[in-house]
Simulated scan of single mutants.
Amino acid sequence: MSEDKTKVLVLLGSLRAGSLNRQLAEVAVENPPSGVEVSLYEGLGDVPLYNEDIDTADAPAAAVALRTAGGNADAVLVVTPEHNGTIPAALKNAIDWLSRPYGSGALKGKPVAVIGSSLSSYGGKWAHDDARKSFGIAGAAVVESSEFSVSSKVFDGKHPRESAEVTARVREVLEKLIADVSH
């Protein structure tokens, strides 16, 4: 590995400021493995719905910023809730923008791991499975061995950073994710 830090971009499926998934993303940012820089992408809510008619040389600035962040990352950690049994709209929209141009999108071949939490006893597993499928179709290299879906009920109103087990699991996912980065 080079002297440069491995860059992990966190894409957050929840737009809500106080969301539990944002808190899980904070745990990832606060606990990177050695030699890894983890940064949370802010701005998915600003990206317009994907429309090929506006995906031109003059694409919207928010979409260009997302693609640039994806292109500059070595790997992506997706932290997402489950909305109506699947991927939140903001995350699906991000996947659509990041997958274009078809065959050479910003995440082509880059490792992606998906984790998150929801109210269900399965912790959002359906959304996480759908996100992995969609990122894979979009050209990313999905790290299947890095699953972590947790029911928000286990936190009992506390920040996930207060759980040593959760912090360890998030760090384990990051370690598996960066193990798939080739330098």
Rank of each mutant, 00 (worst) to 15 (best):
G123Q: 05
S118T: 12
V29S: 06
V47Y: 10
A28P: 03
N51W: 03
G124S: 11
A138G: 14
Y102D: 13
S120Y: 08
T6W: 04
P111C: 06
L9Y: 09
N31E: 06
E147A: 15
D46C: 03
V64G: 01
S134T: 11
G103V: 08
L66N: 13
N31K: 04
I54N: 00
H128V: 02
G139A: 15
V8T: 14
A75Q: 12
S117V: 08
A63W: 01
L44F: 08
A90K: 02
V78P: 15
T86P: 07
K125V: 09
V112K: 05
P60V: 00
A17D: 11
A94L: 13
D46V: 01
K7W: 10
A69E: 14
V78I: 14
D74K: 07
G105F: 07
V64C: 01
S145M: 11
V38T: 08
S149V: 05
I54L: 02
S146W: 08
P48C: 10
G105T: 09
V36I: 08
G139N: 13
A127Q: 04
L91N: 10
F148S: 11
G71F: 03
G105K: 05
D46S: 12
K133T: 04
W97V: 00
A59M: 14
L24D: 00
T56Y: 00
V150W: 11
K133R: 13
L24C: 07
D130A: 13
K5H: 13
S134A: 15
R132L: 04
Y122Q: 10
W126Y: 03
G13M: 04
N31H: 07
N21C: 01
L49K: 01
S34G: 04
L119E: 10
Y50V: 02
K110P: 09
F135S: 07
G139I: 09
P33E: 05
G35I: 10
S118V: 02
R100A: 08
L66H: 12
D58S: 06
E42H: 02
G136T: 09
K5E: 15
K125R: 13
E26D: 13
S104Q: 15
L44W: 04
D46P: 06
K110T: 08
V8S: 11
I137M: 14
H83G: 07
E52A: 09
G13F: 03
E37P: 15
P32K: 04
S99Y: 02
L119N: 12
L91S: 13
K92G: 13
F148L: 15
V142R: 11
N21E: 11
G43P: 09
T56P: 00
D55N: 06
G109Q: 09
K110V: 01
E147T: 14
E37N: 12
G35P: 11
T80A: 15
E144M: 08
G139R: 14
S19F: 04
F148V: 12
P33C: 09
W97K: 03
R67C: 07
G136K: 06
K133G: 02
A127S: 14
S121A: 12
R16D: 05
A28N: 07
L91T: 07
S104C: 08
A61L: 07
S134L: 07
A28F: 07
G123L: 06
G43Y: 01
V114N: 05
Y102S: 12
G13T: 05
S99T: 04
V114T: 03
W126I: 02
A140C: 14
S118I: 05
R132P: 08
V112A: 06
V76T: 15
D53Q: 04
V76Y: 06
G139H: 10
S39Y: 00
L91F: 12
G139W: 13
S14H: 04
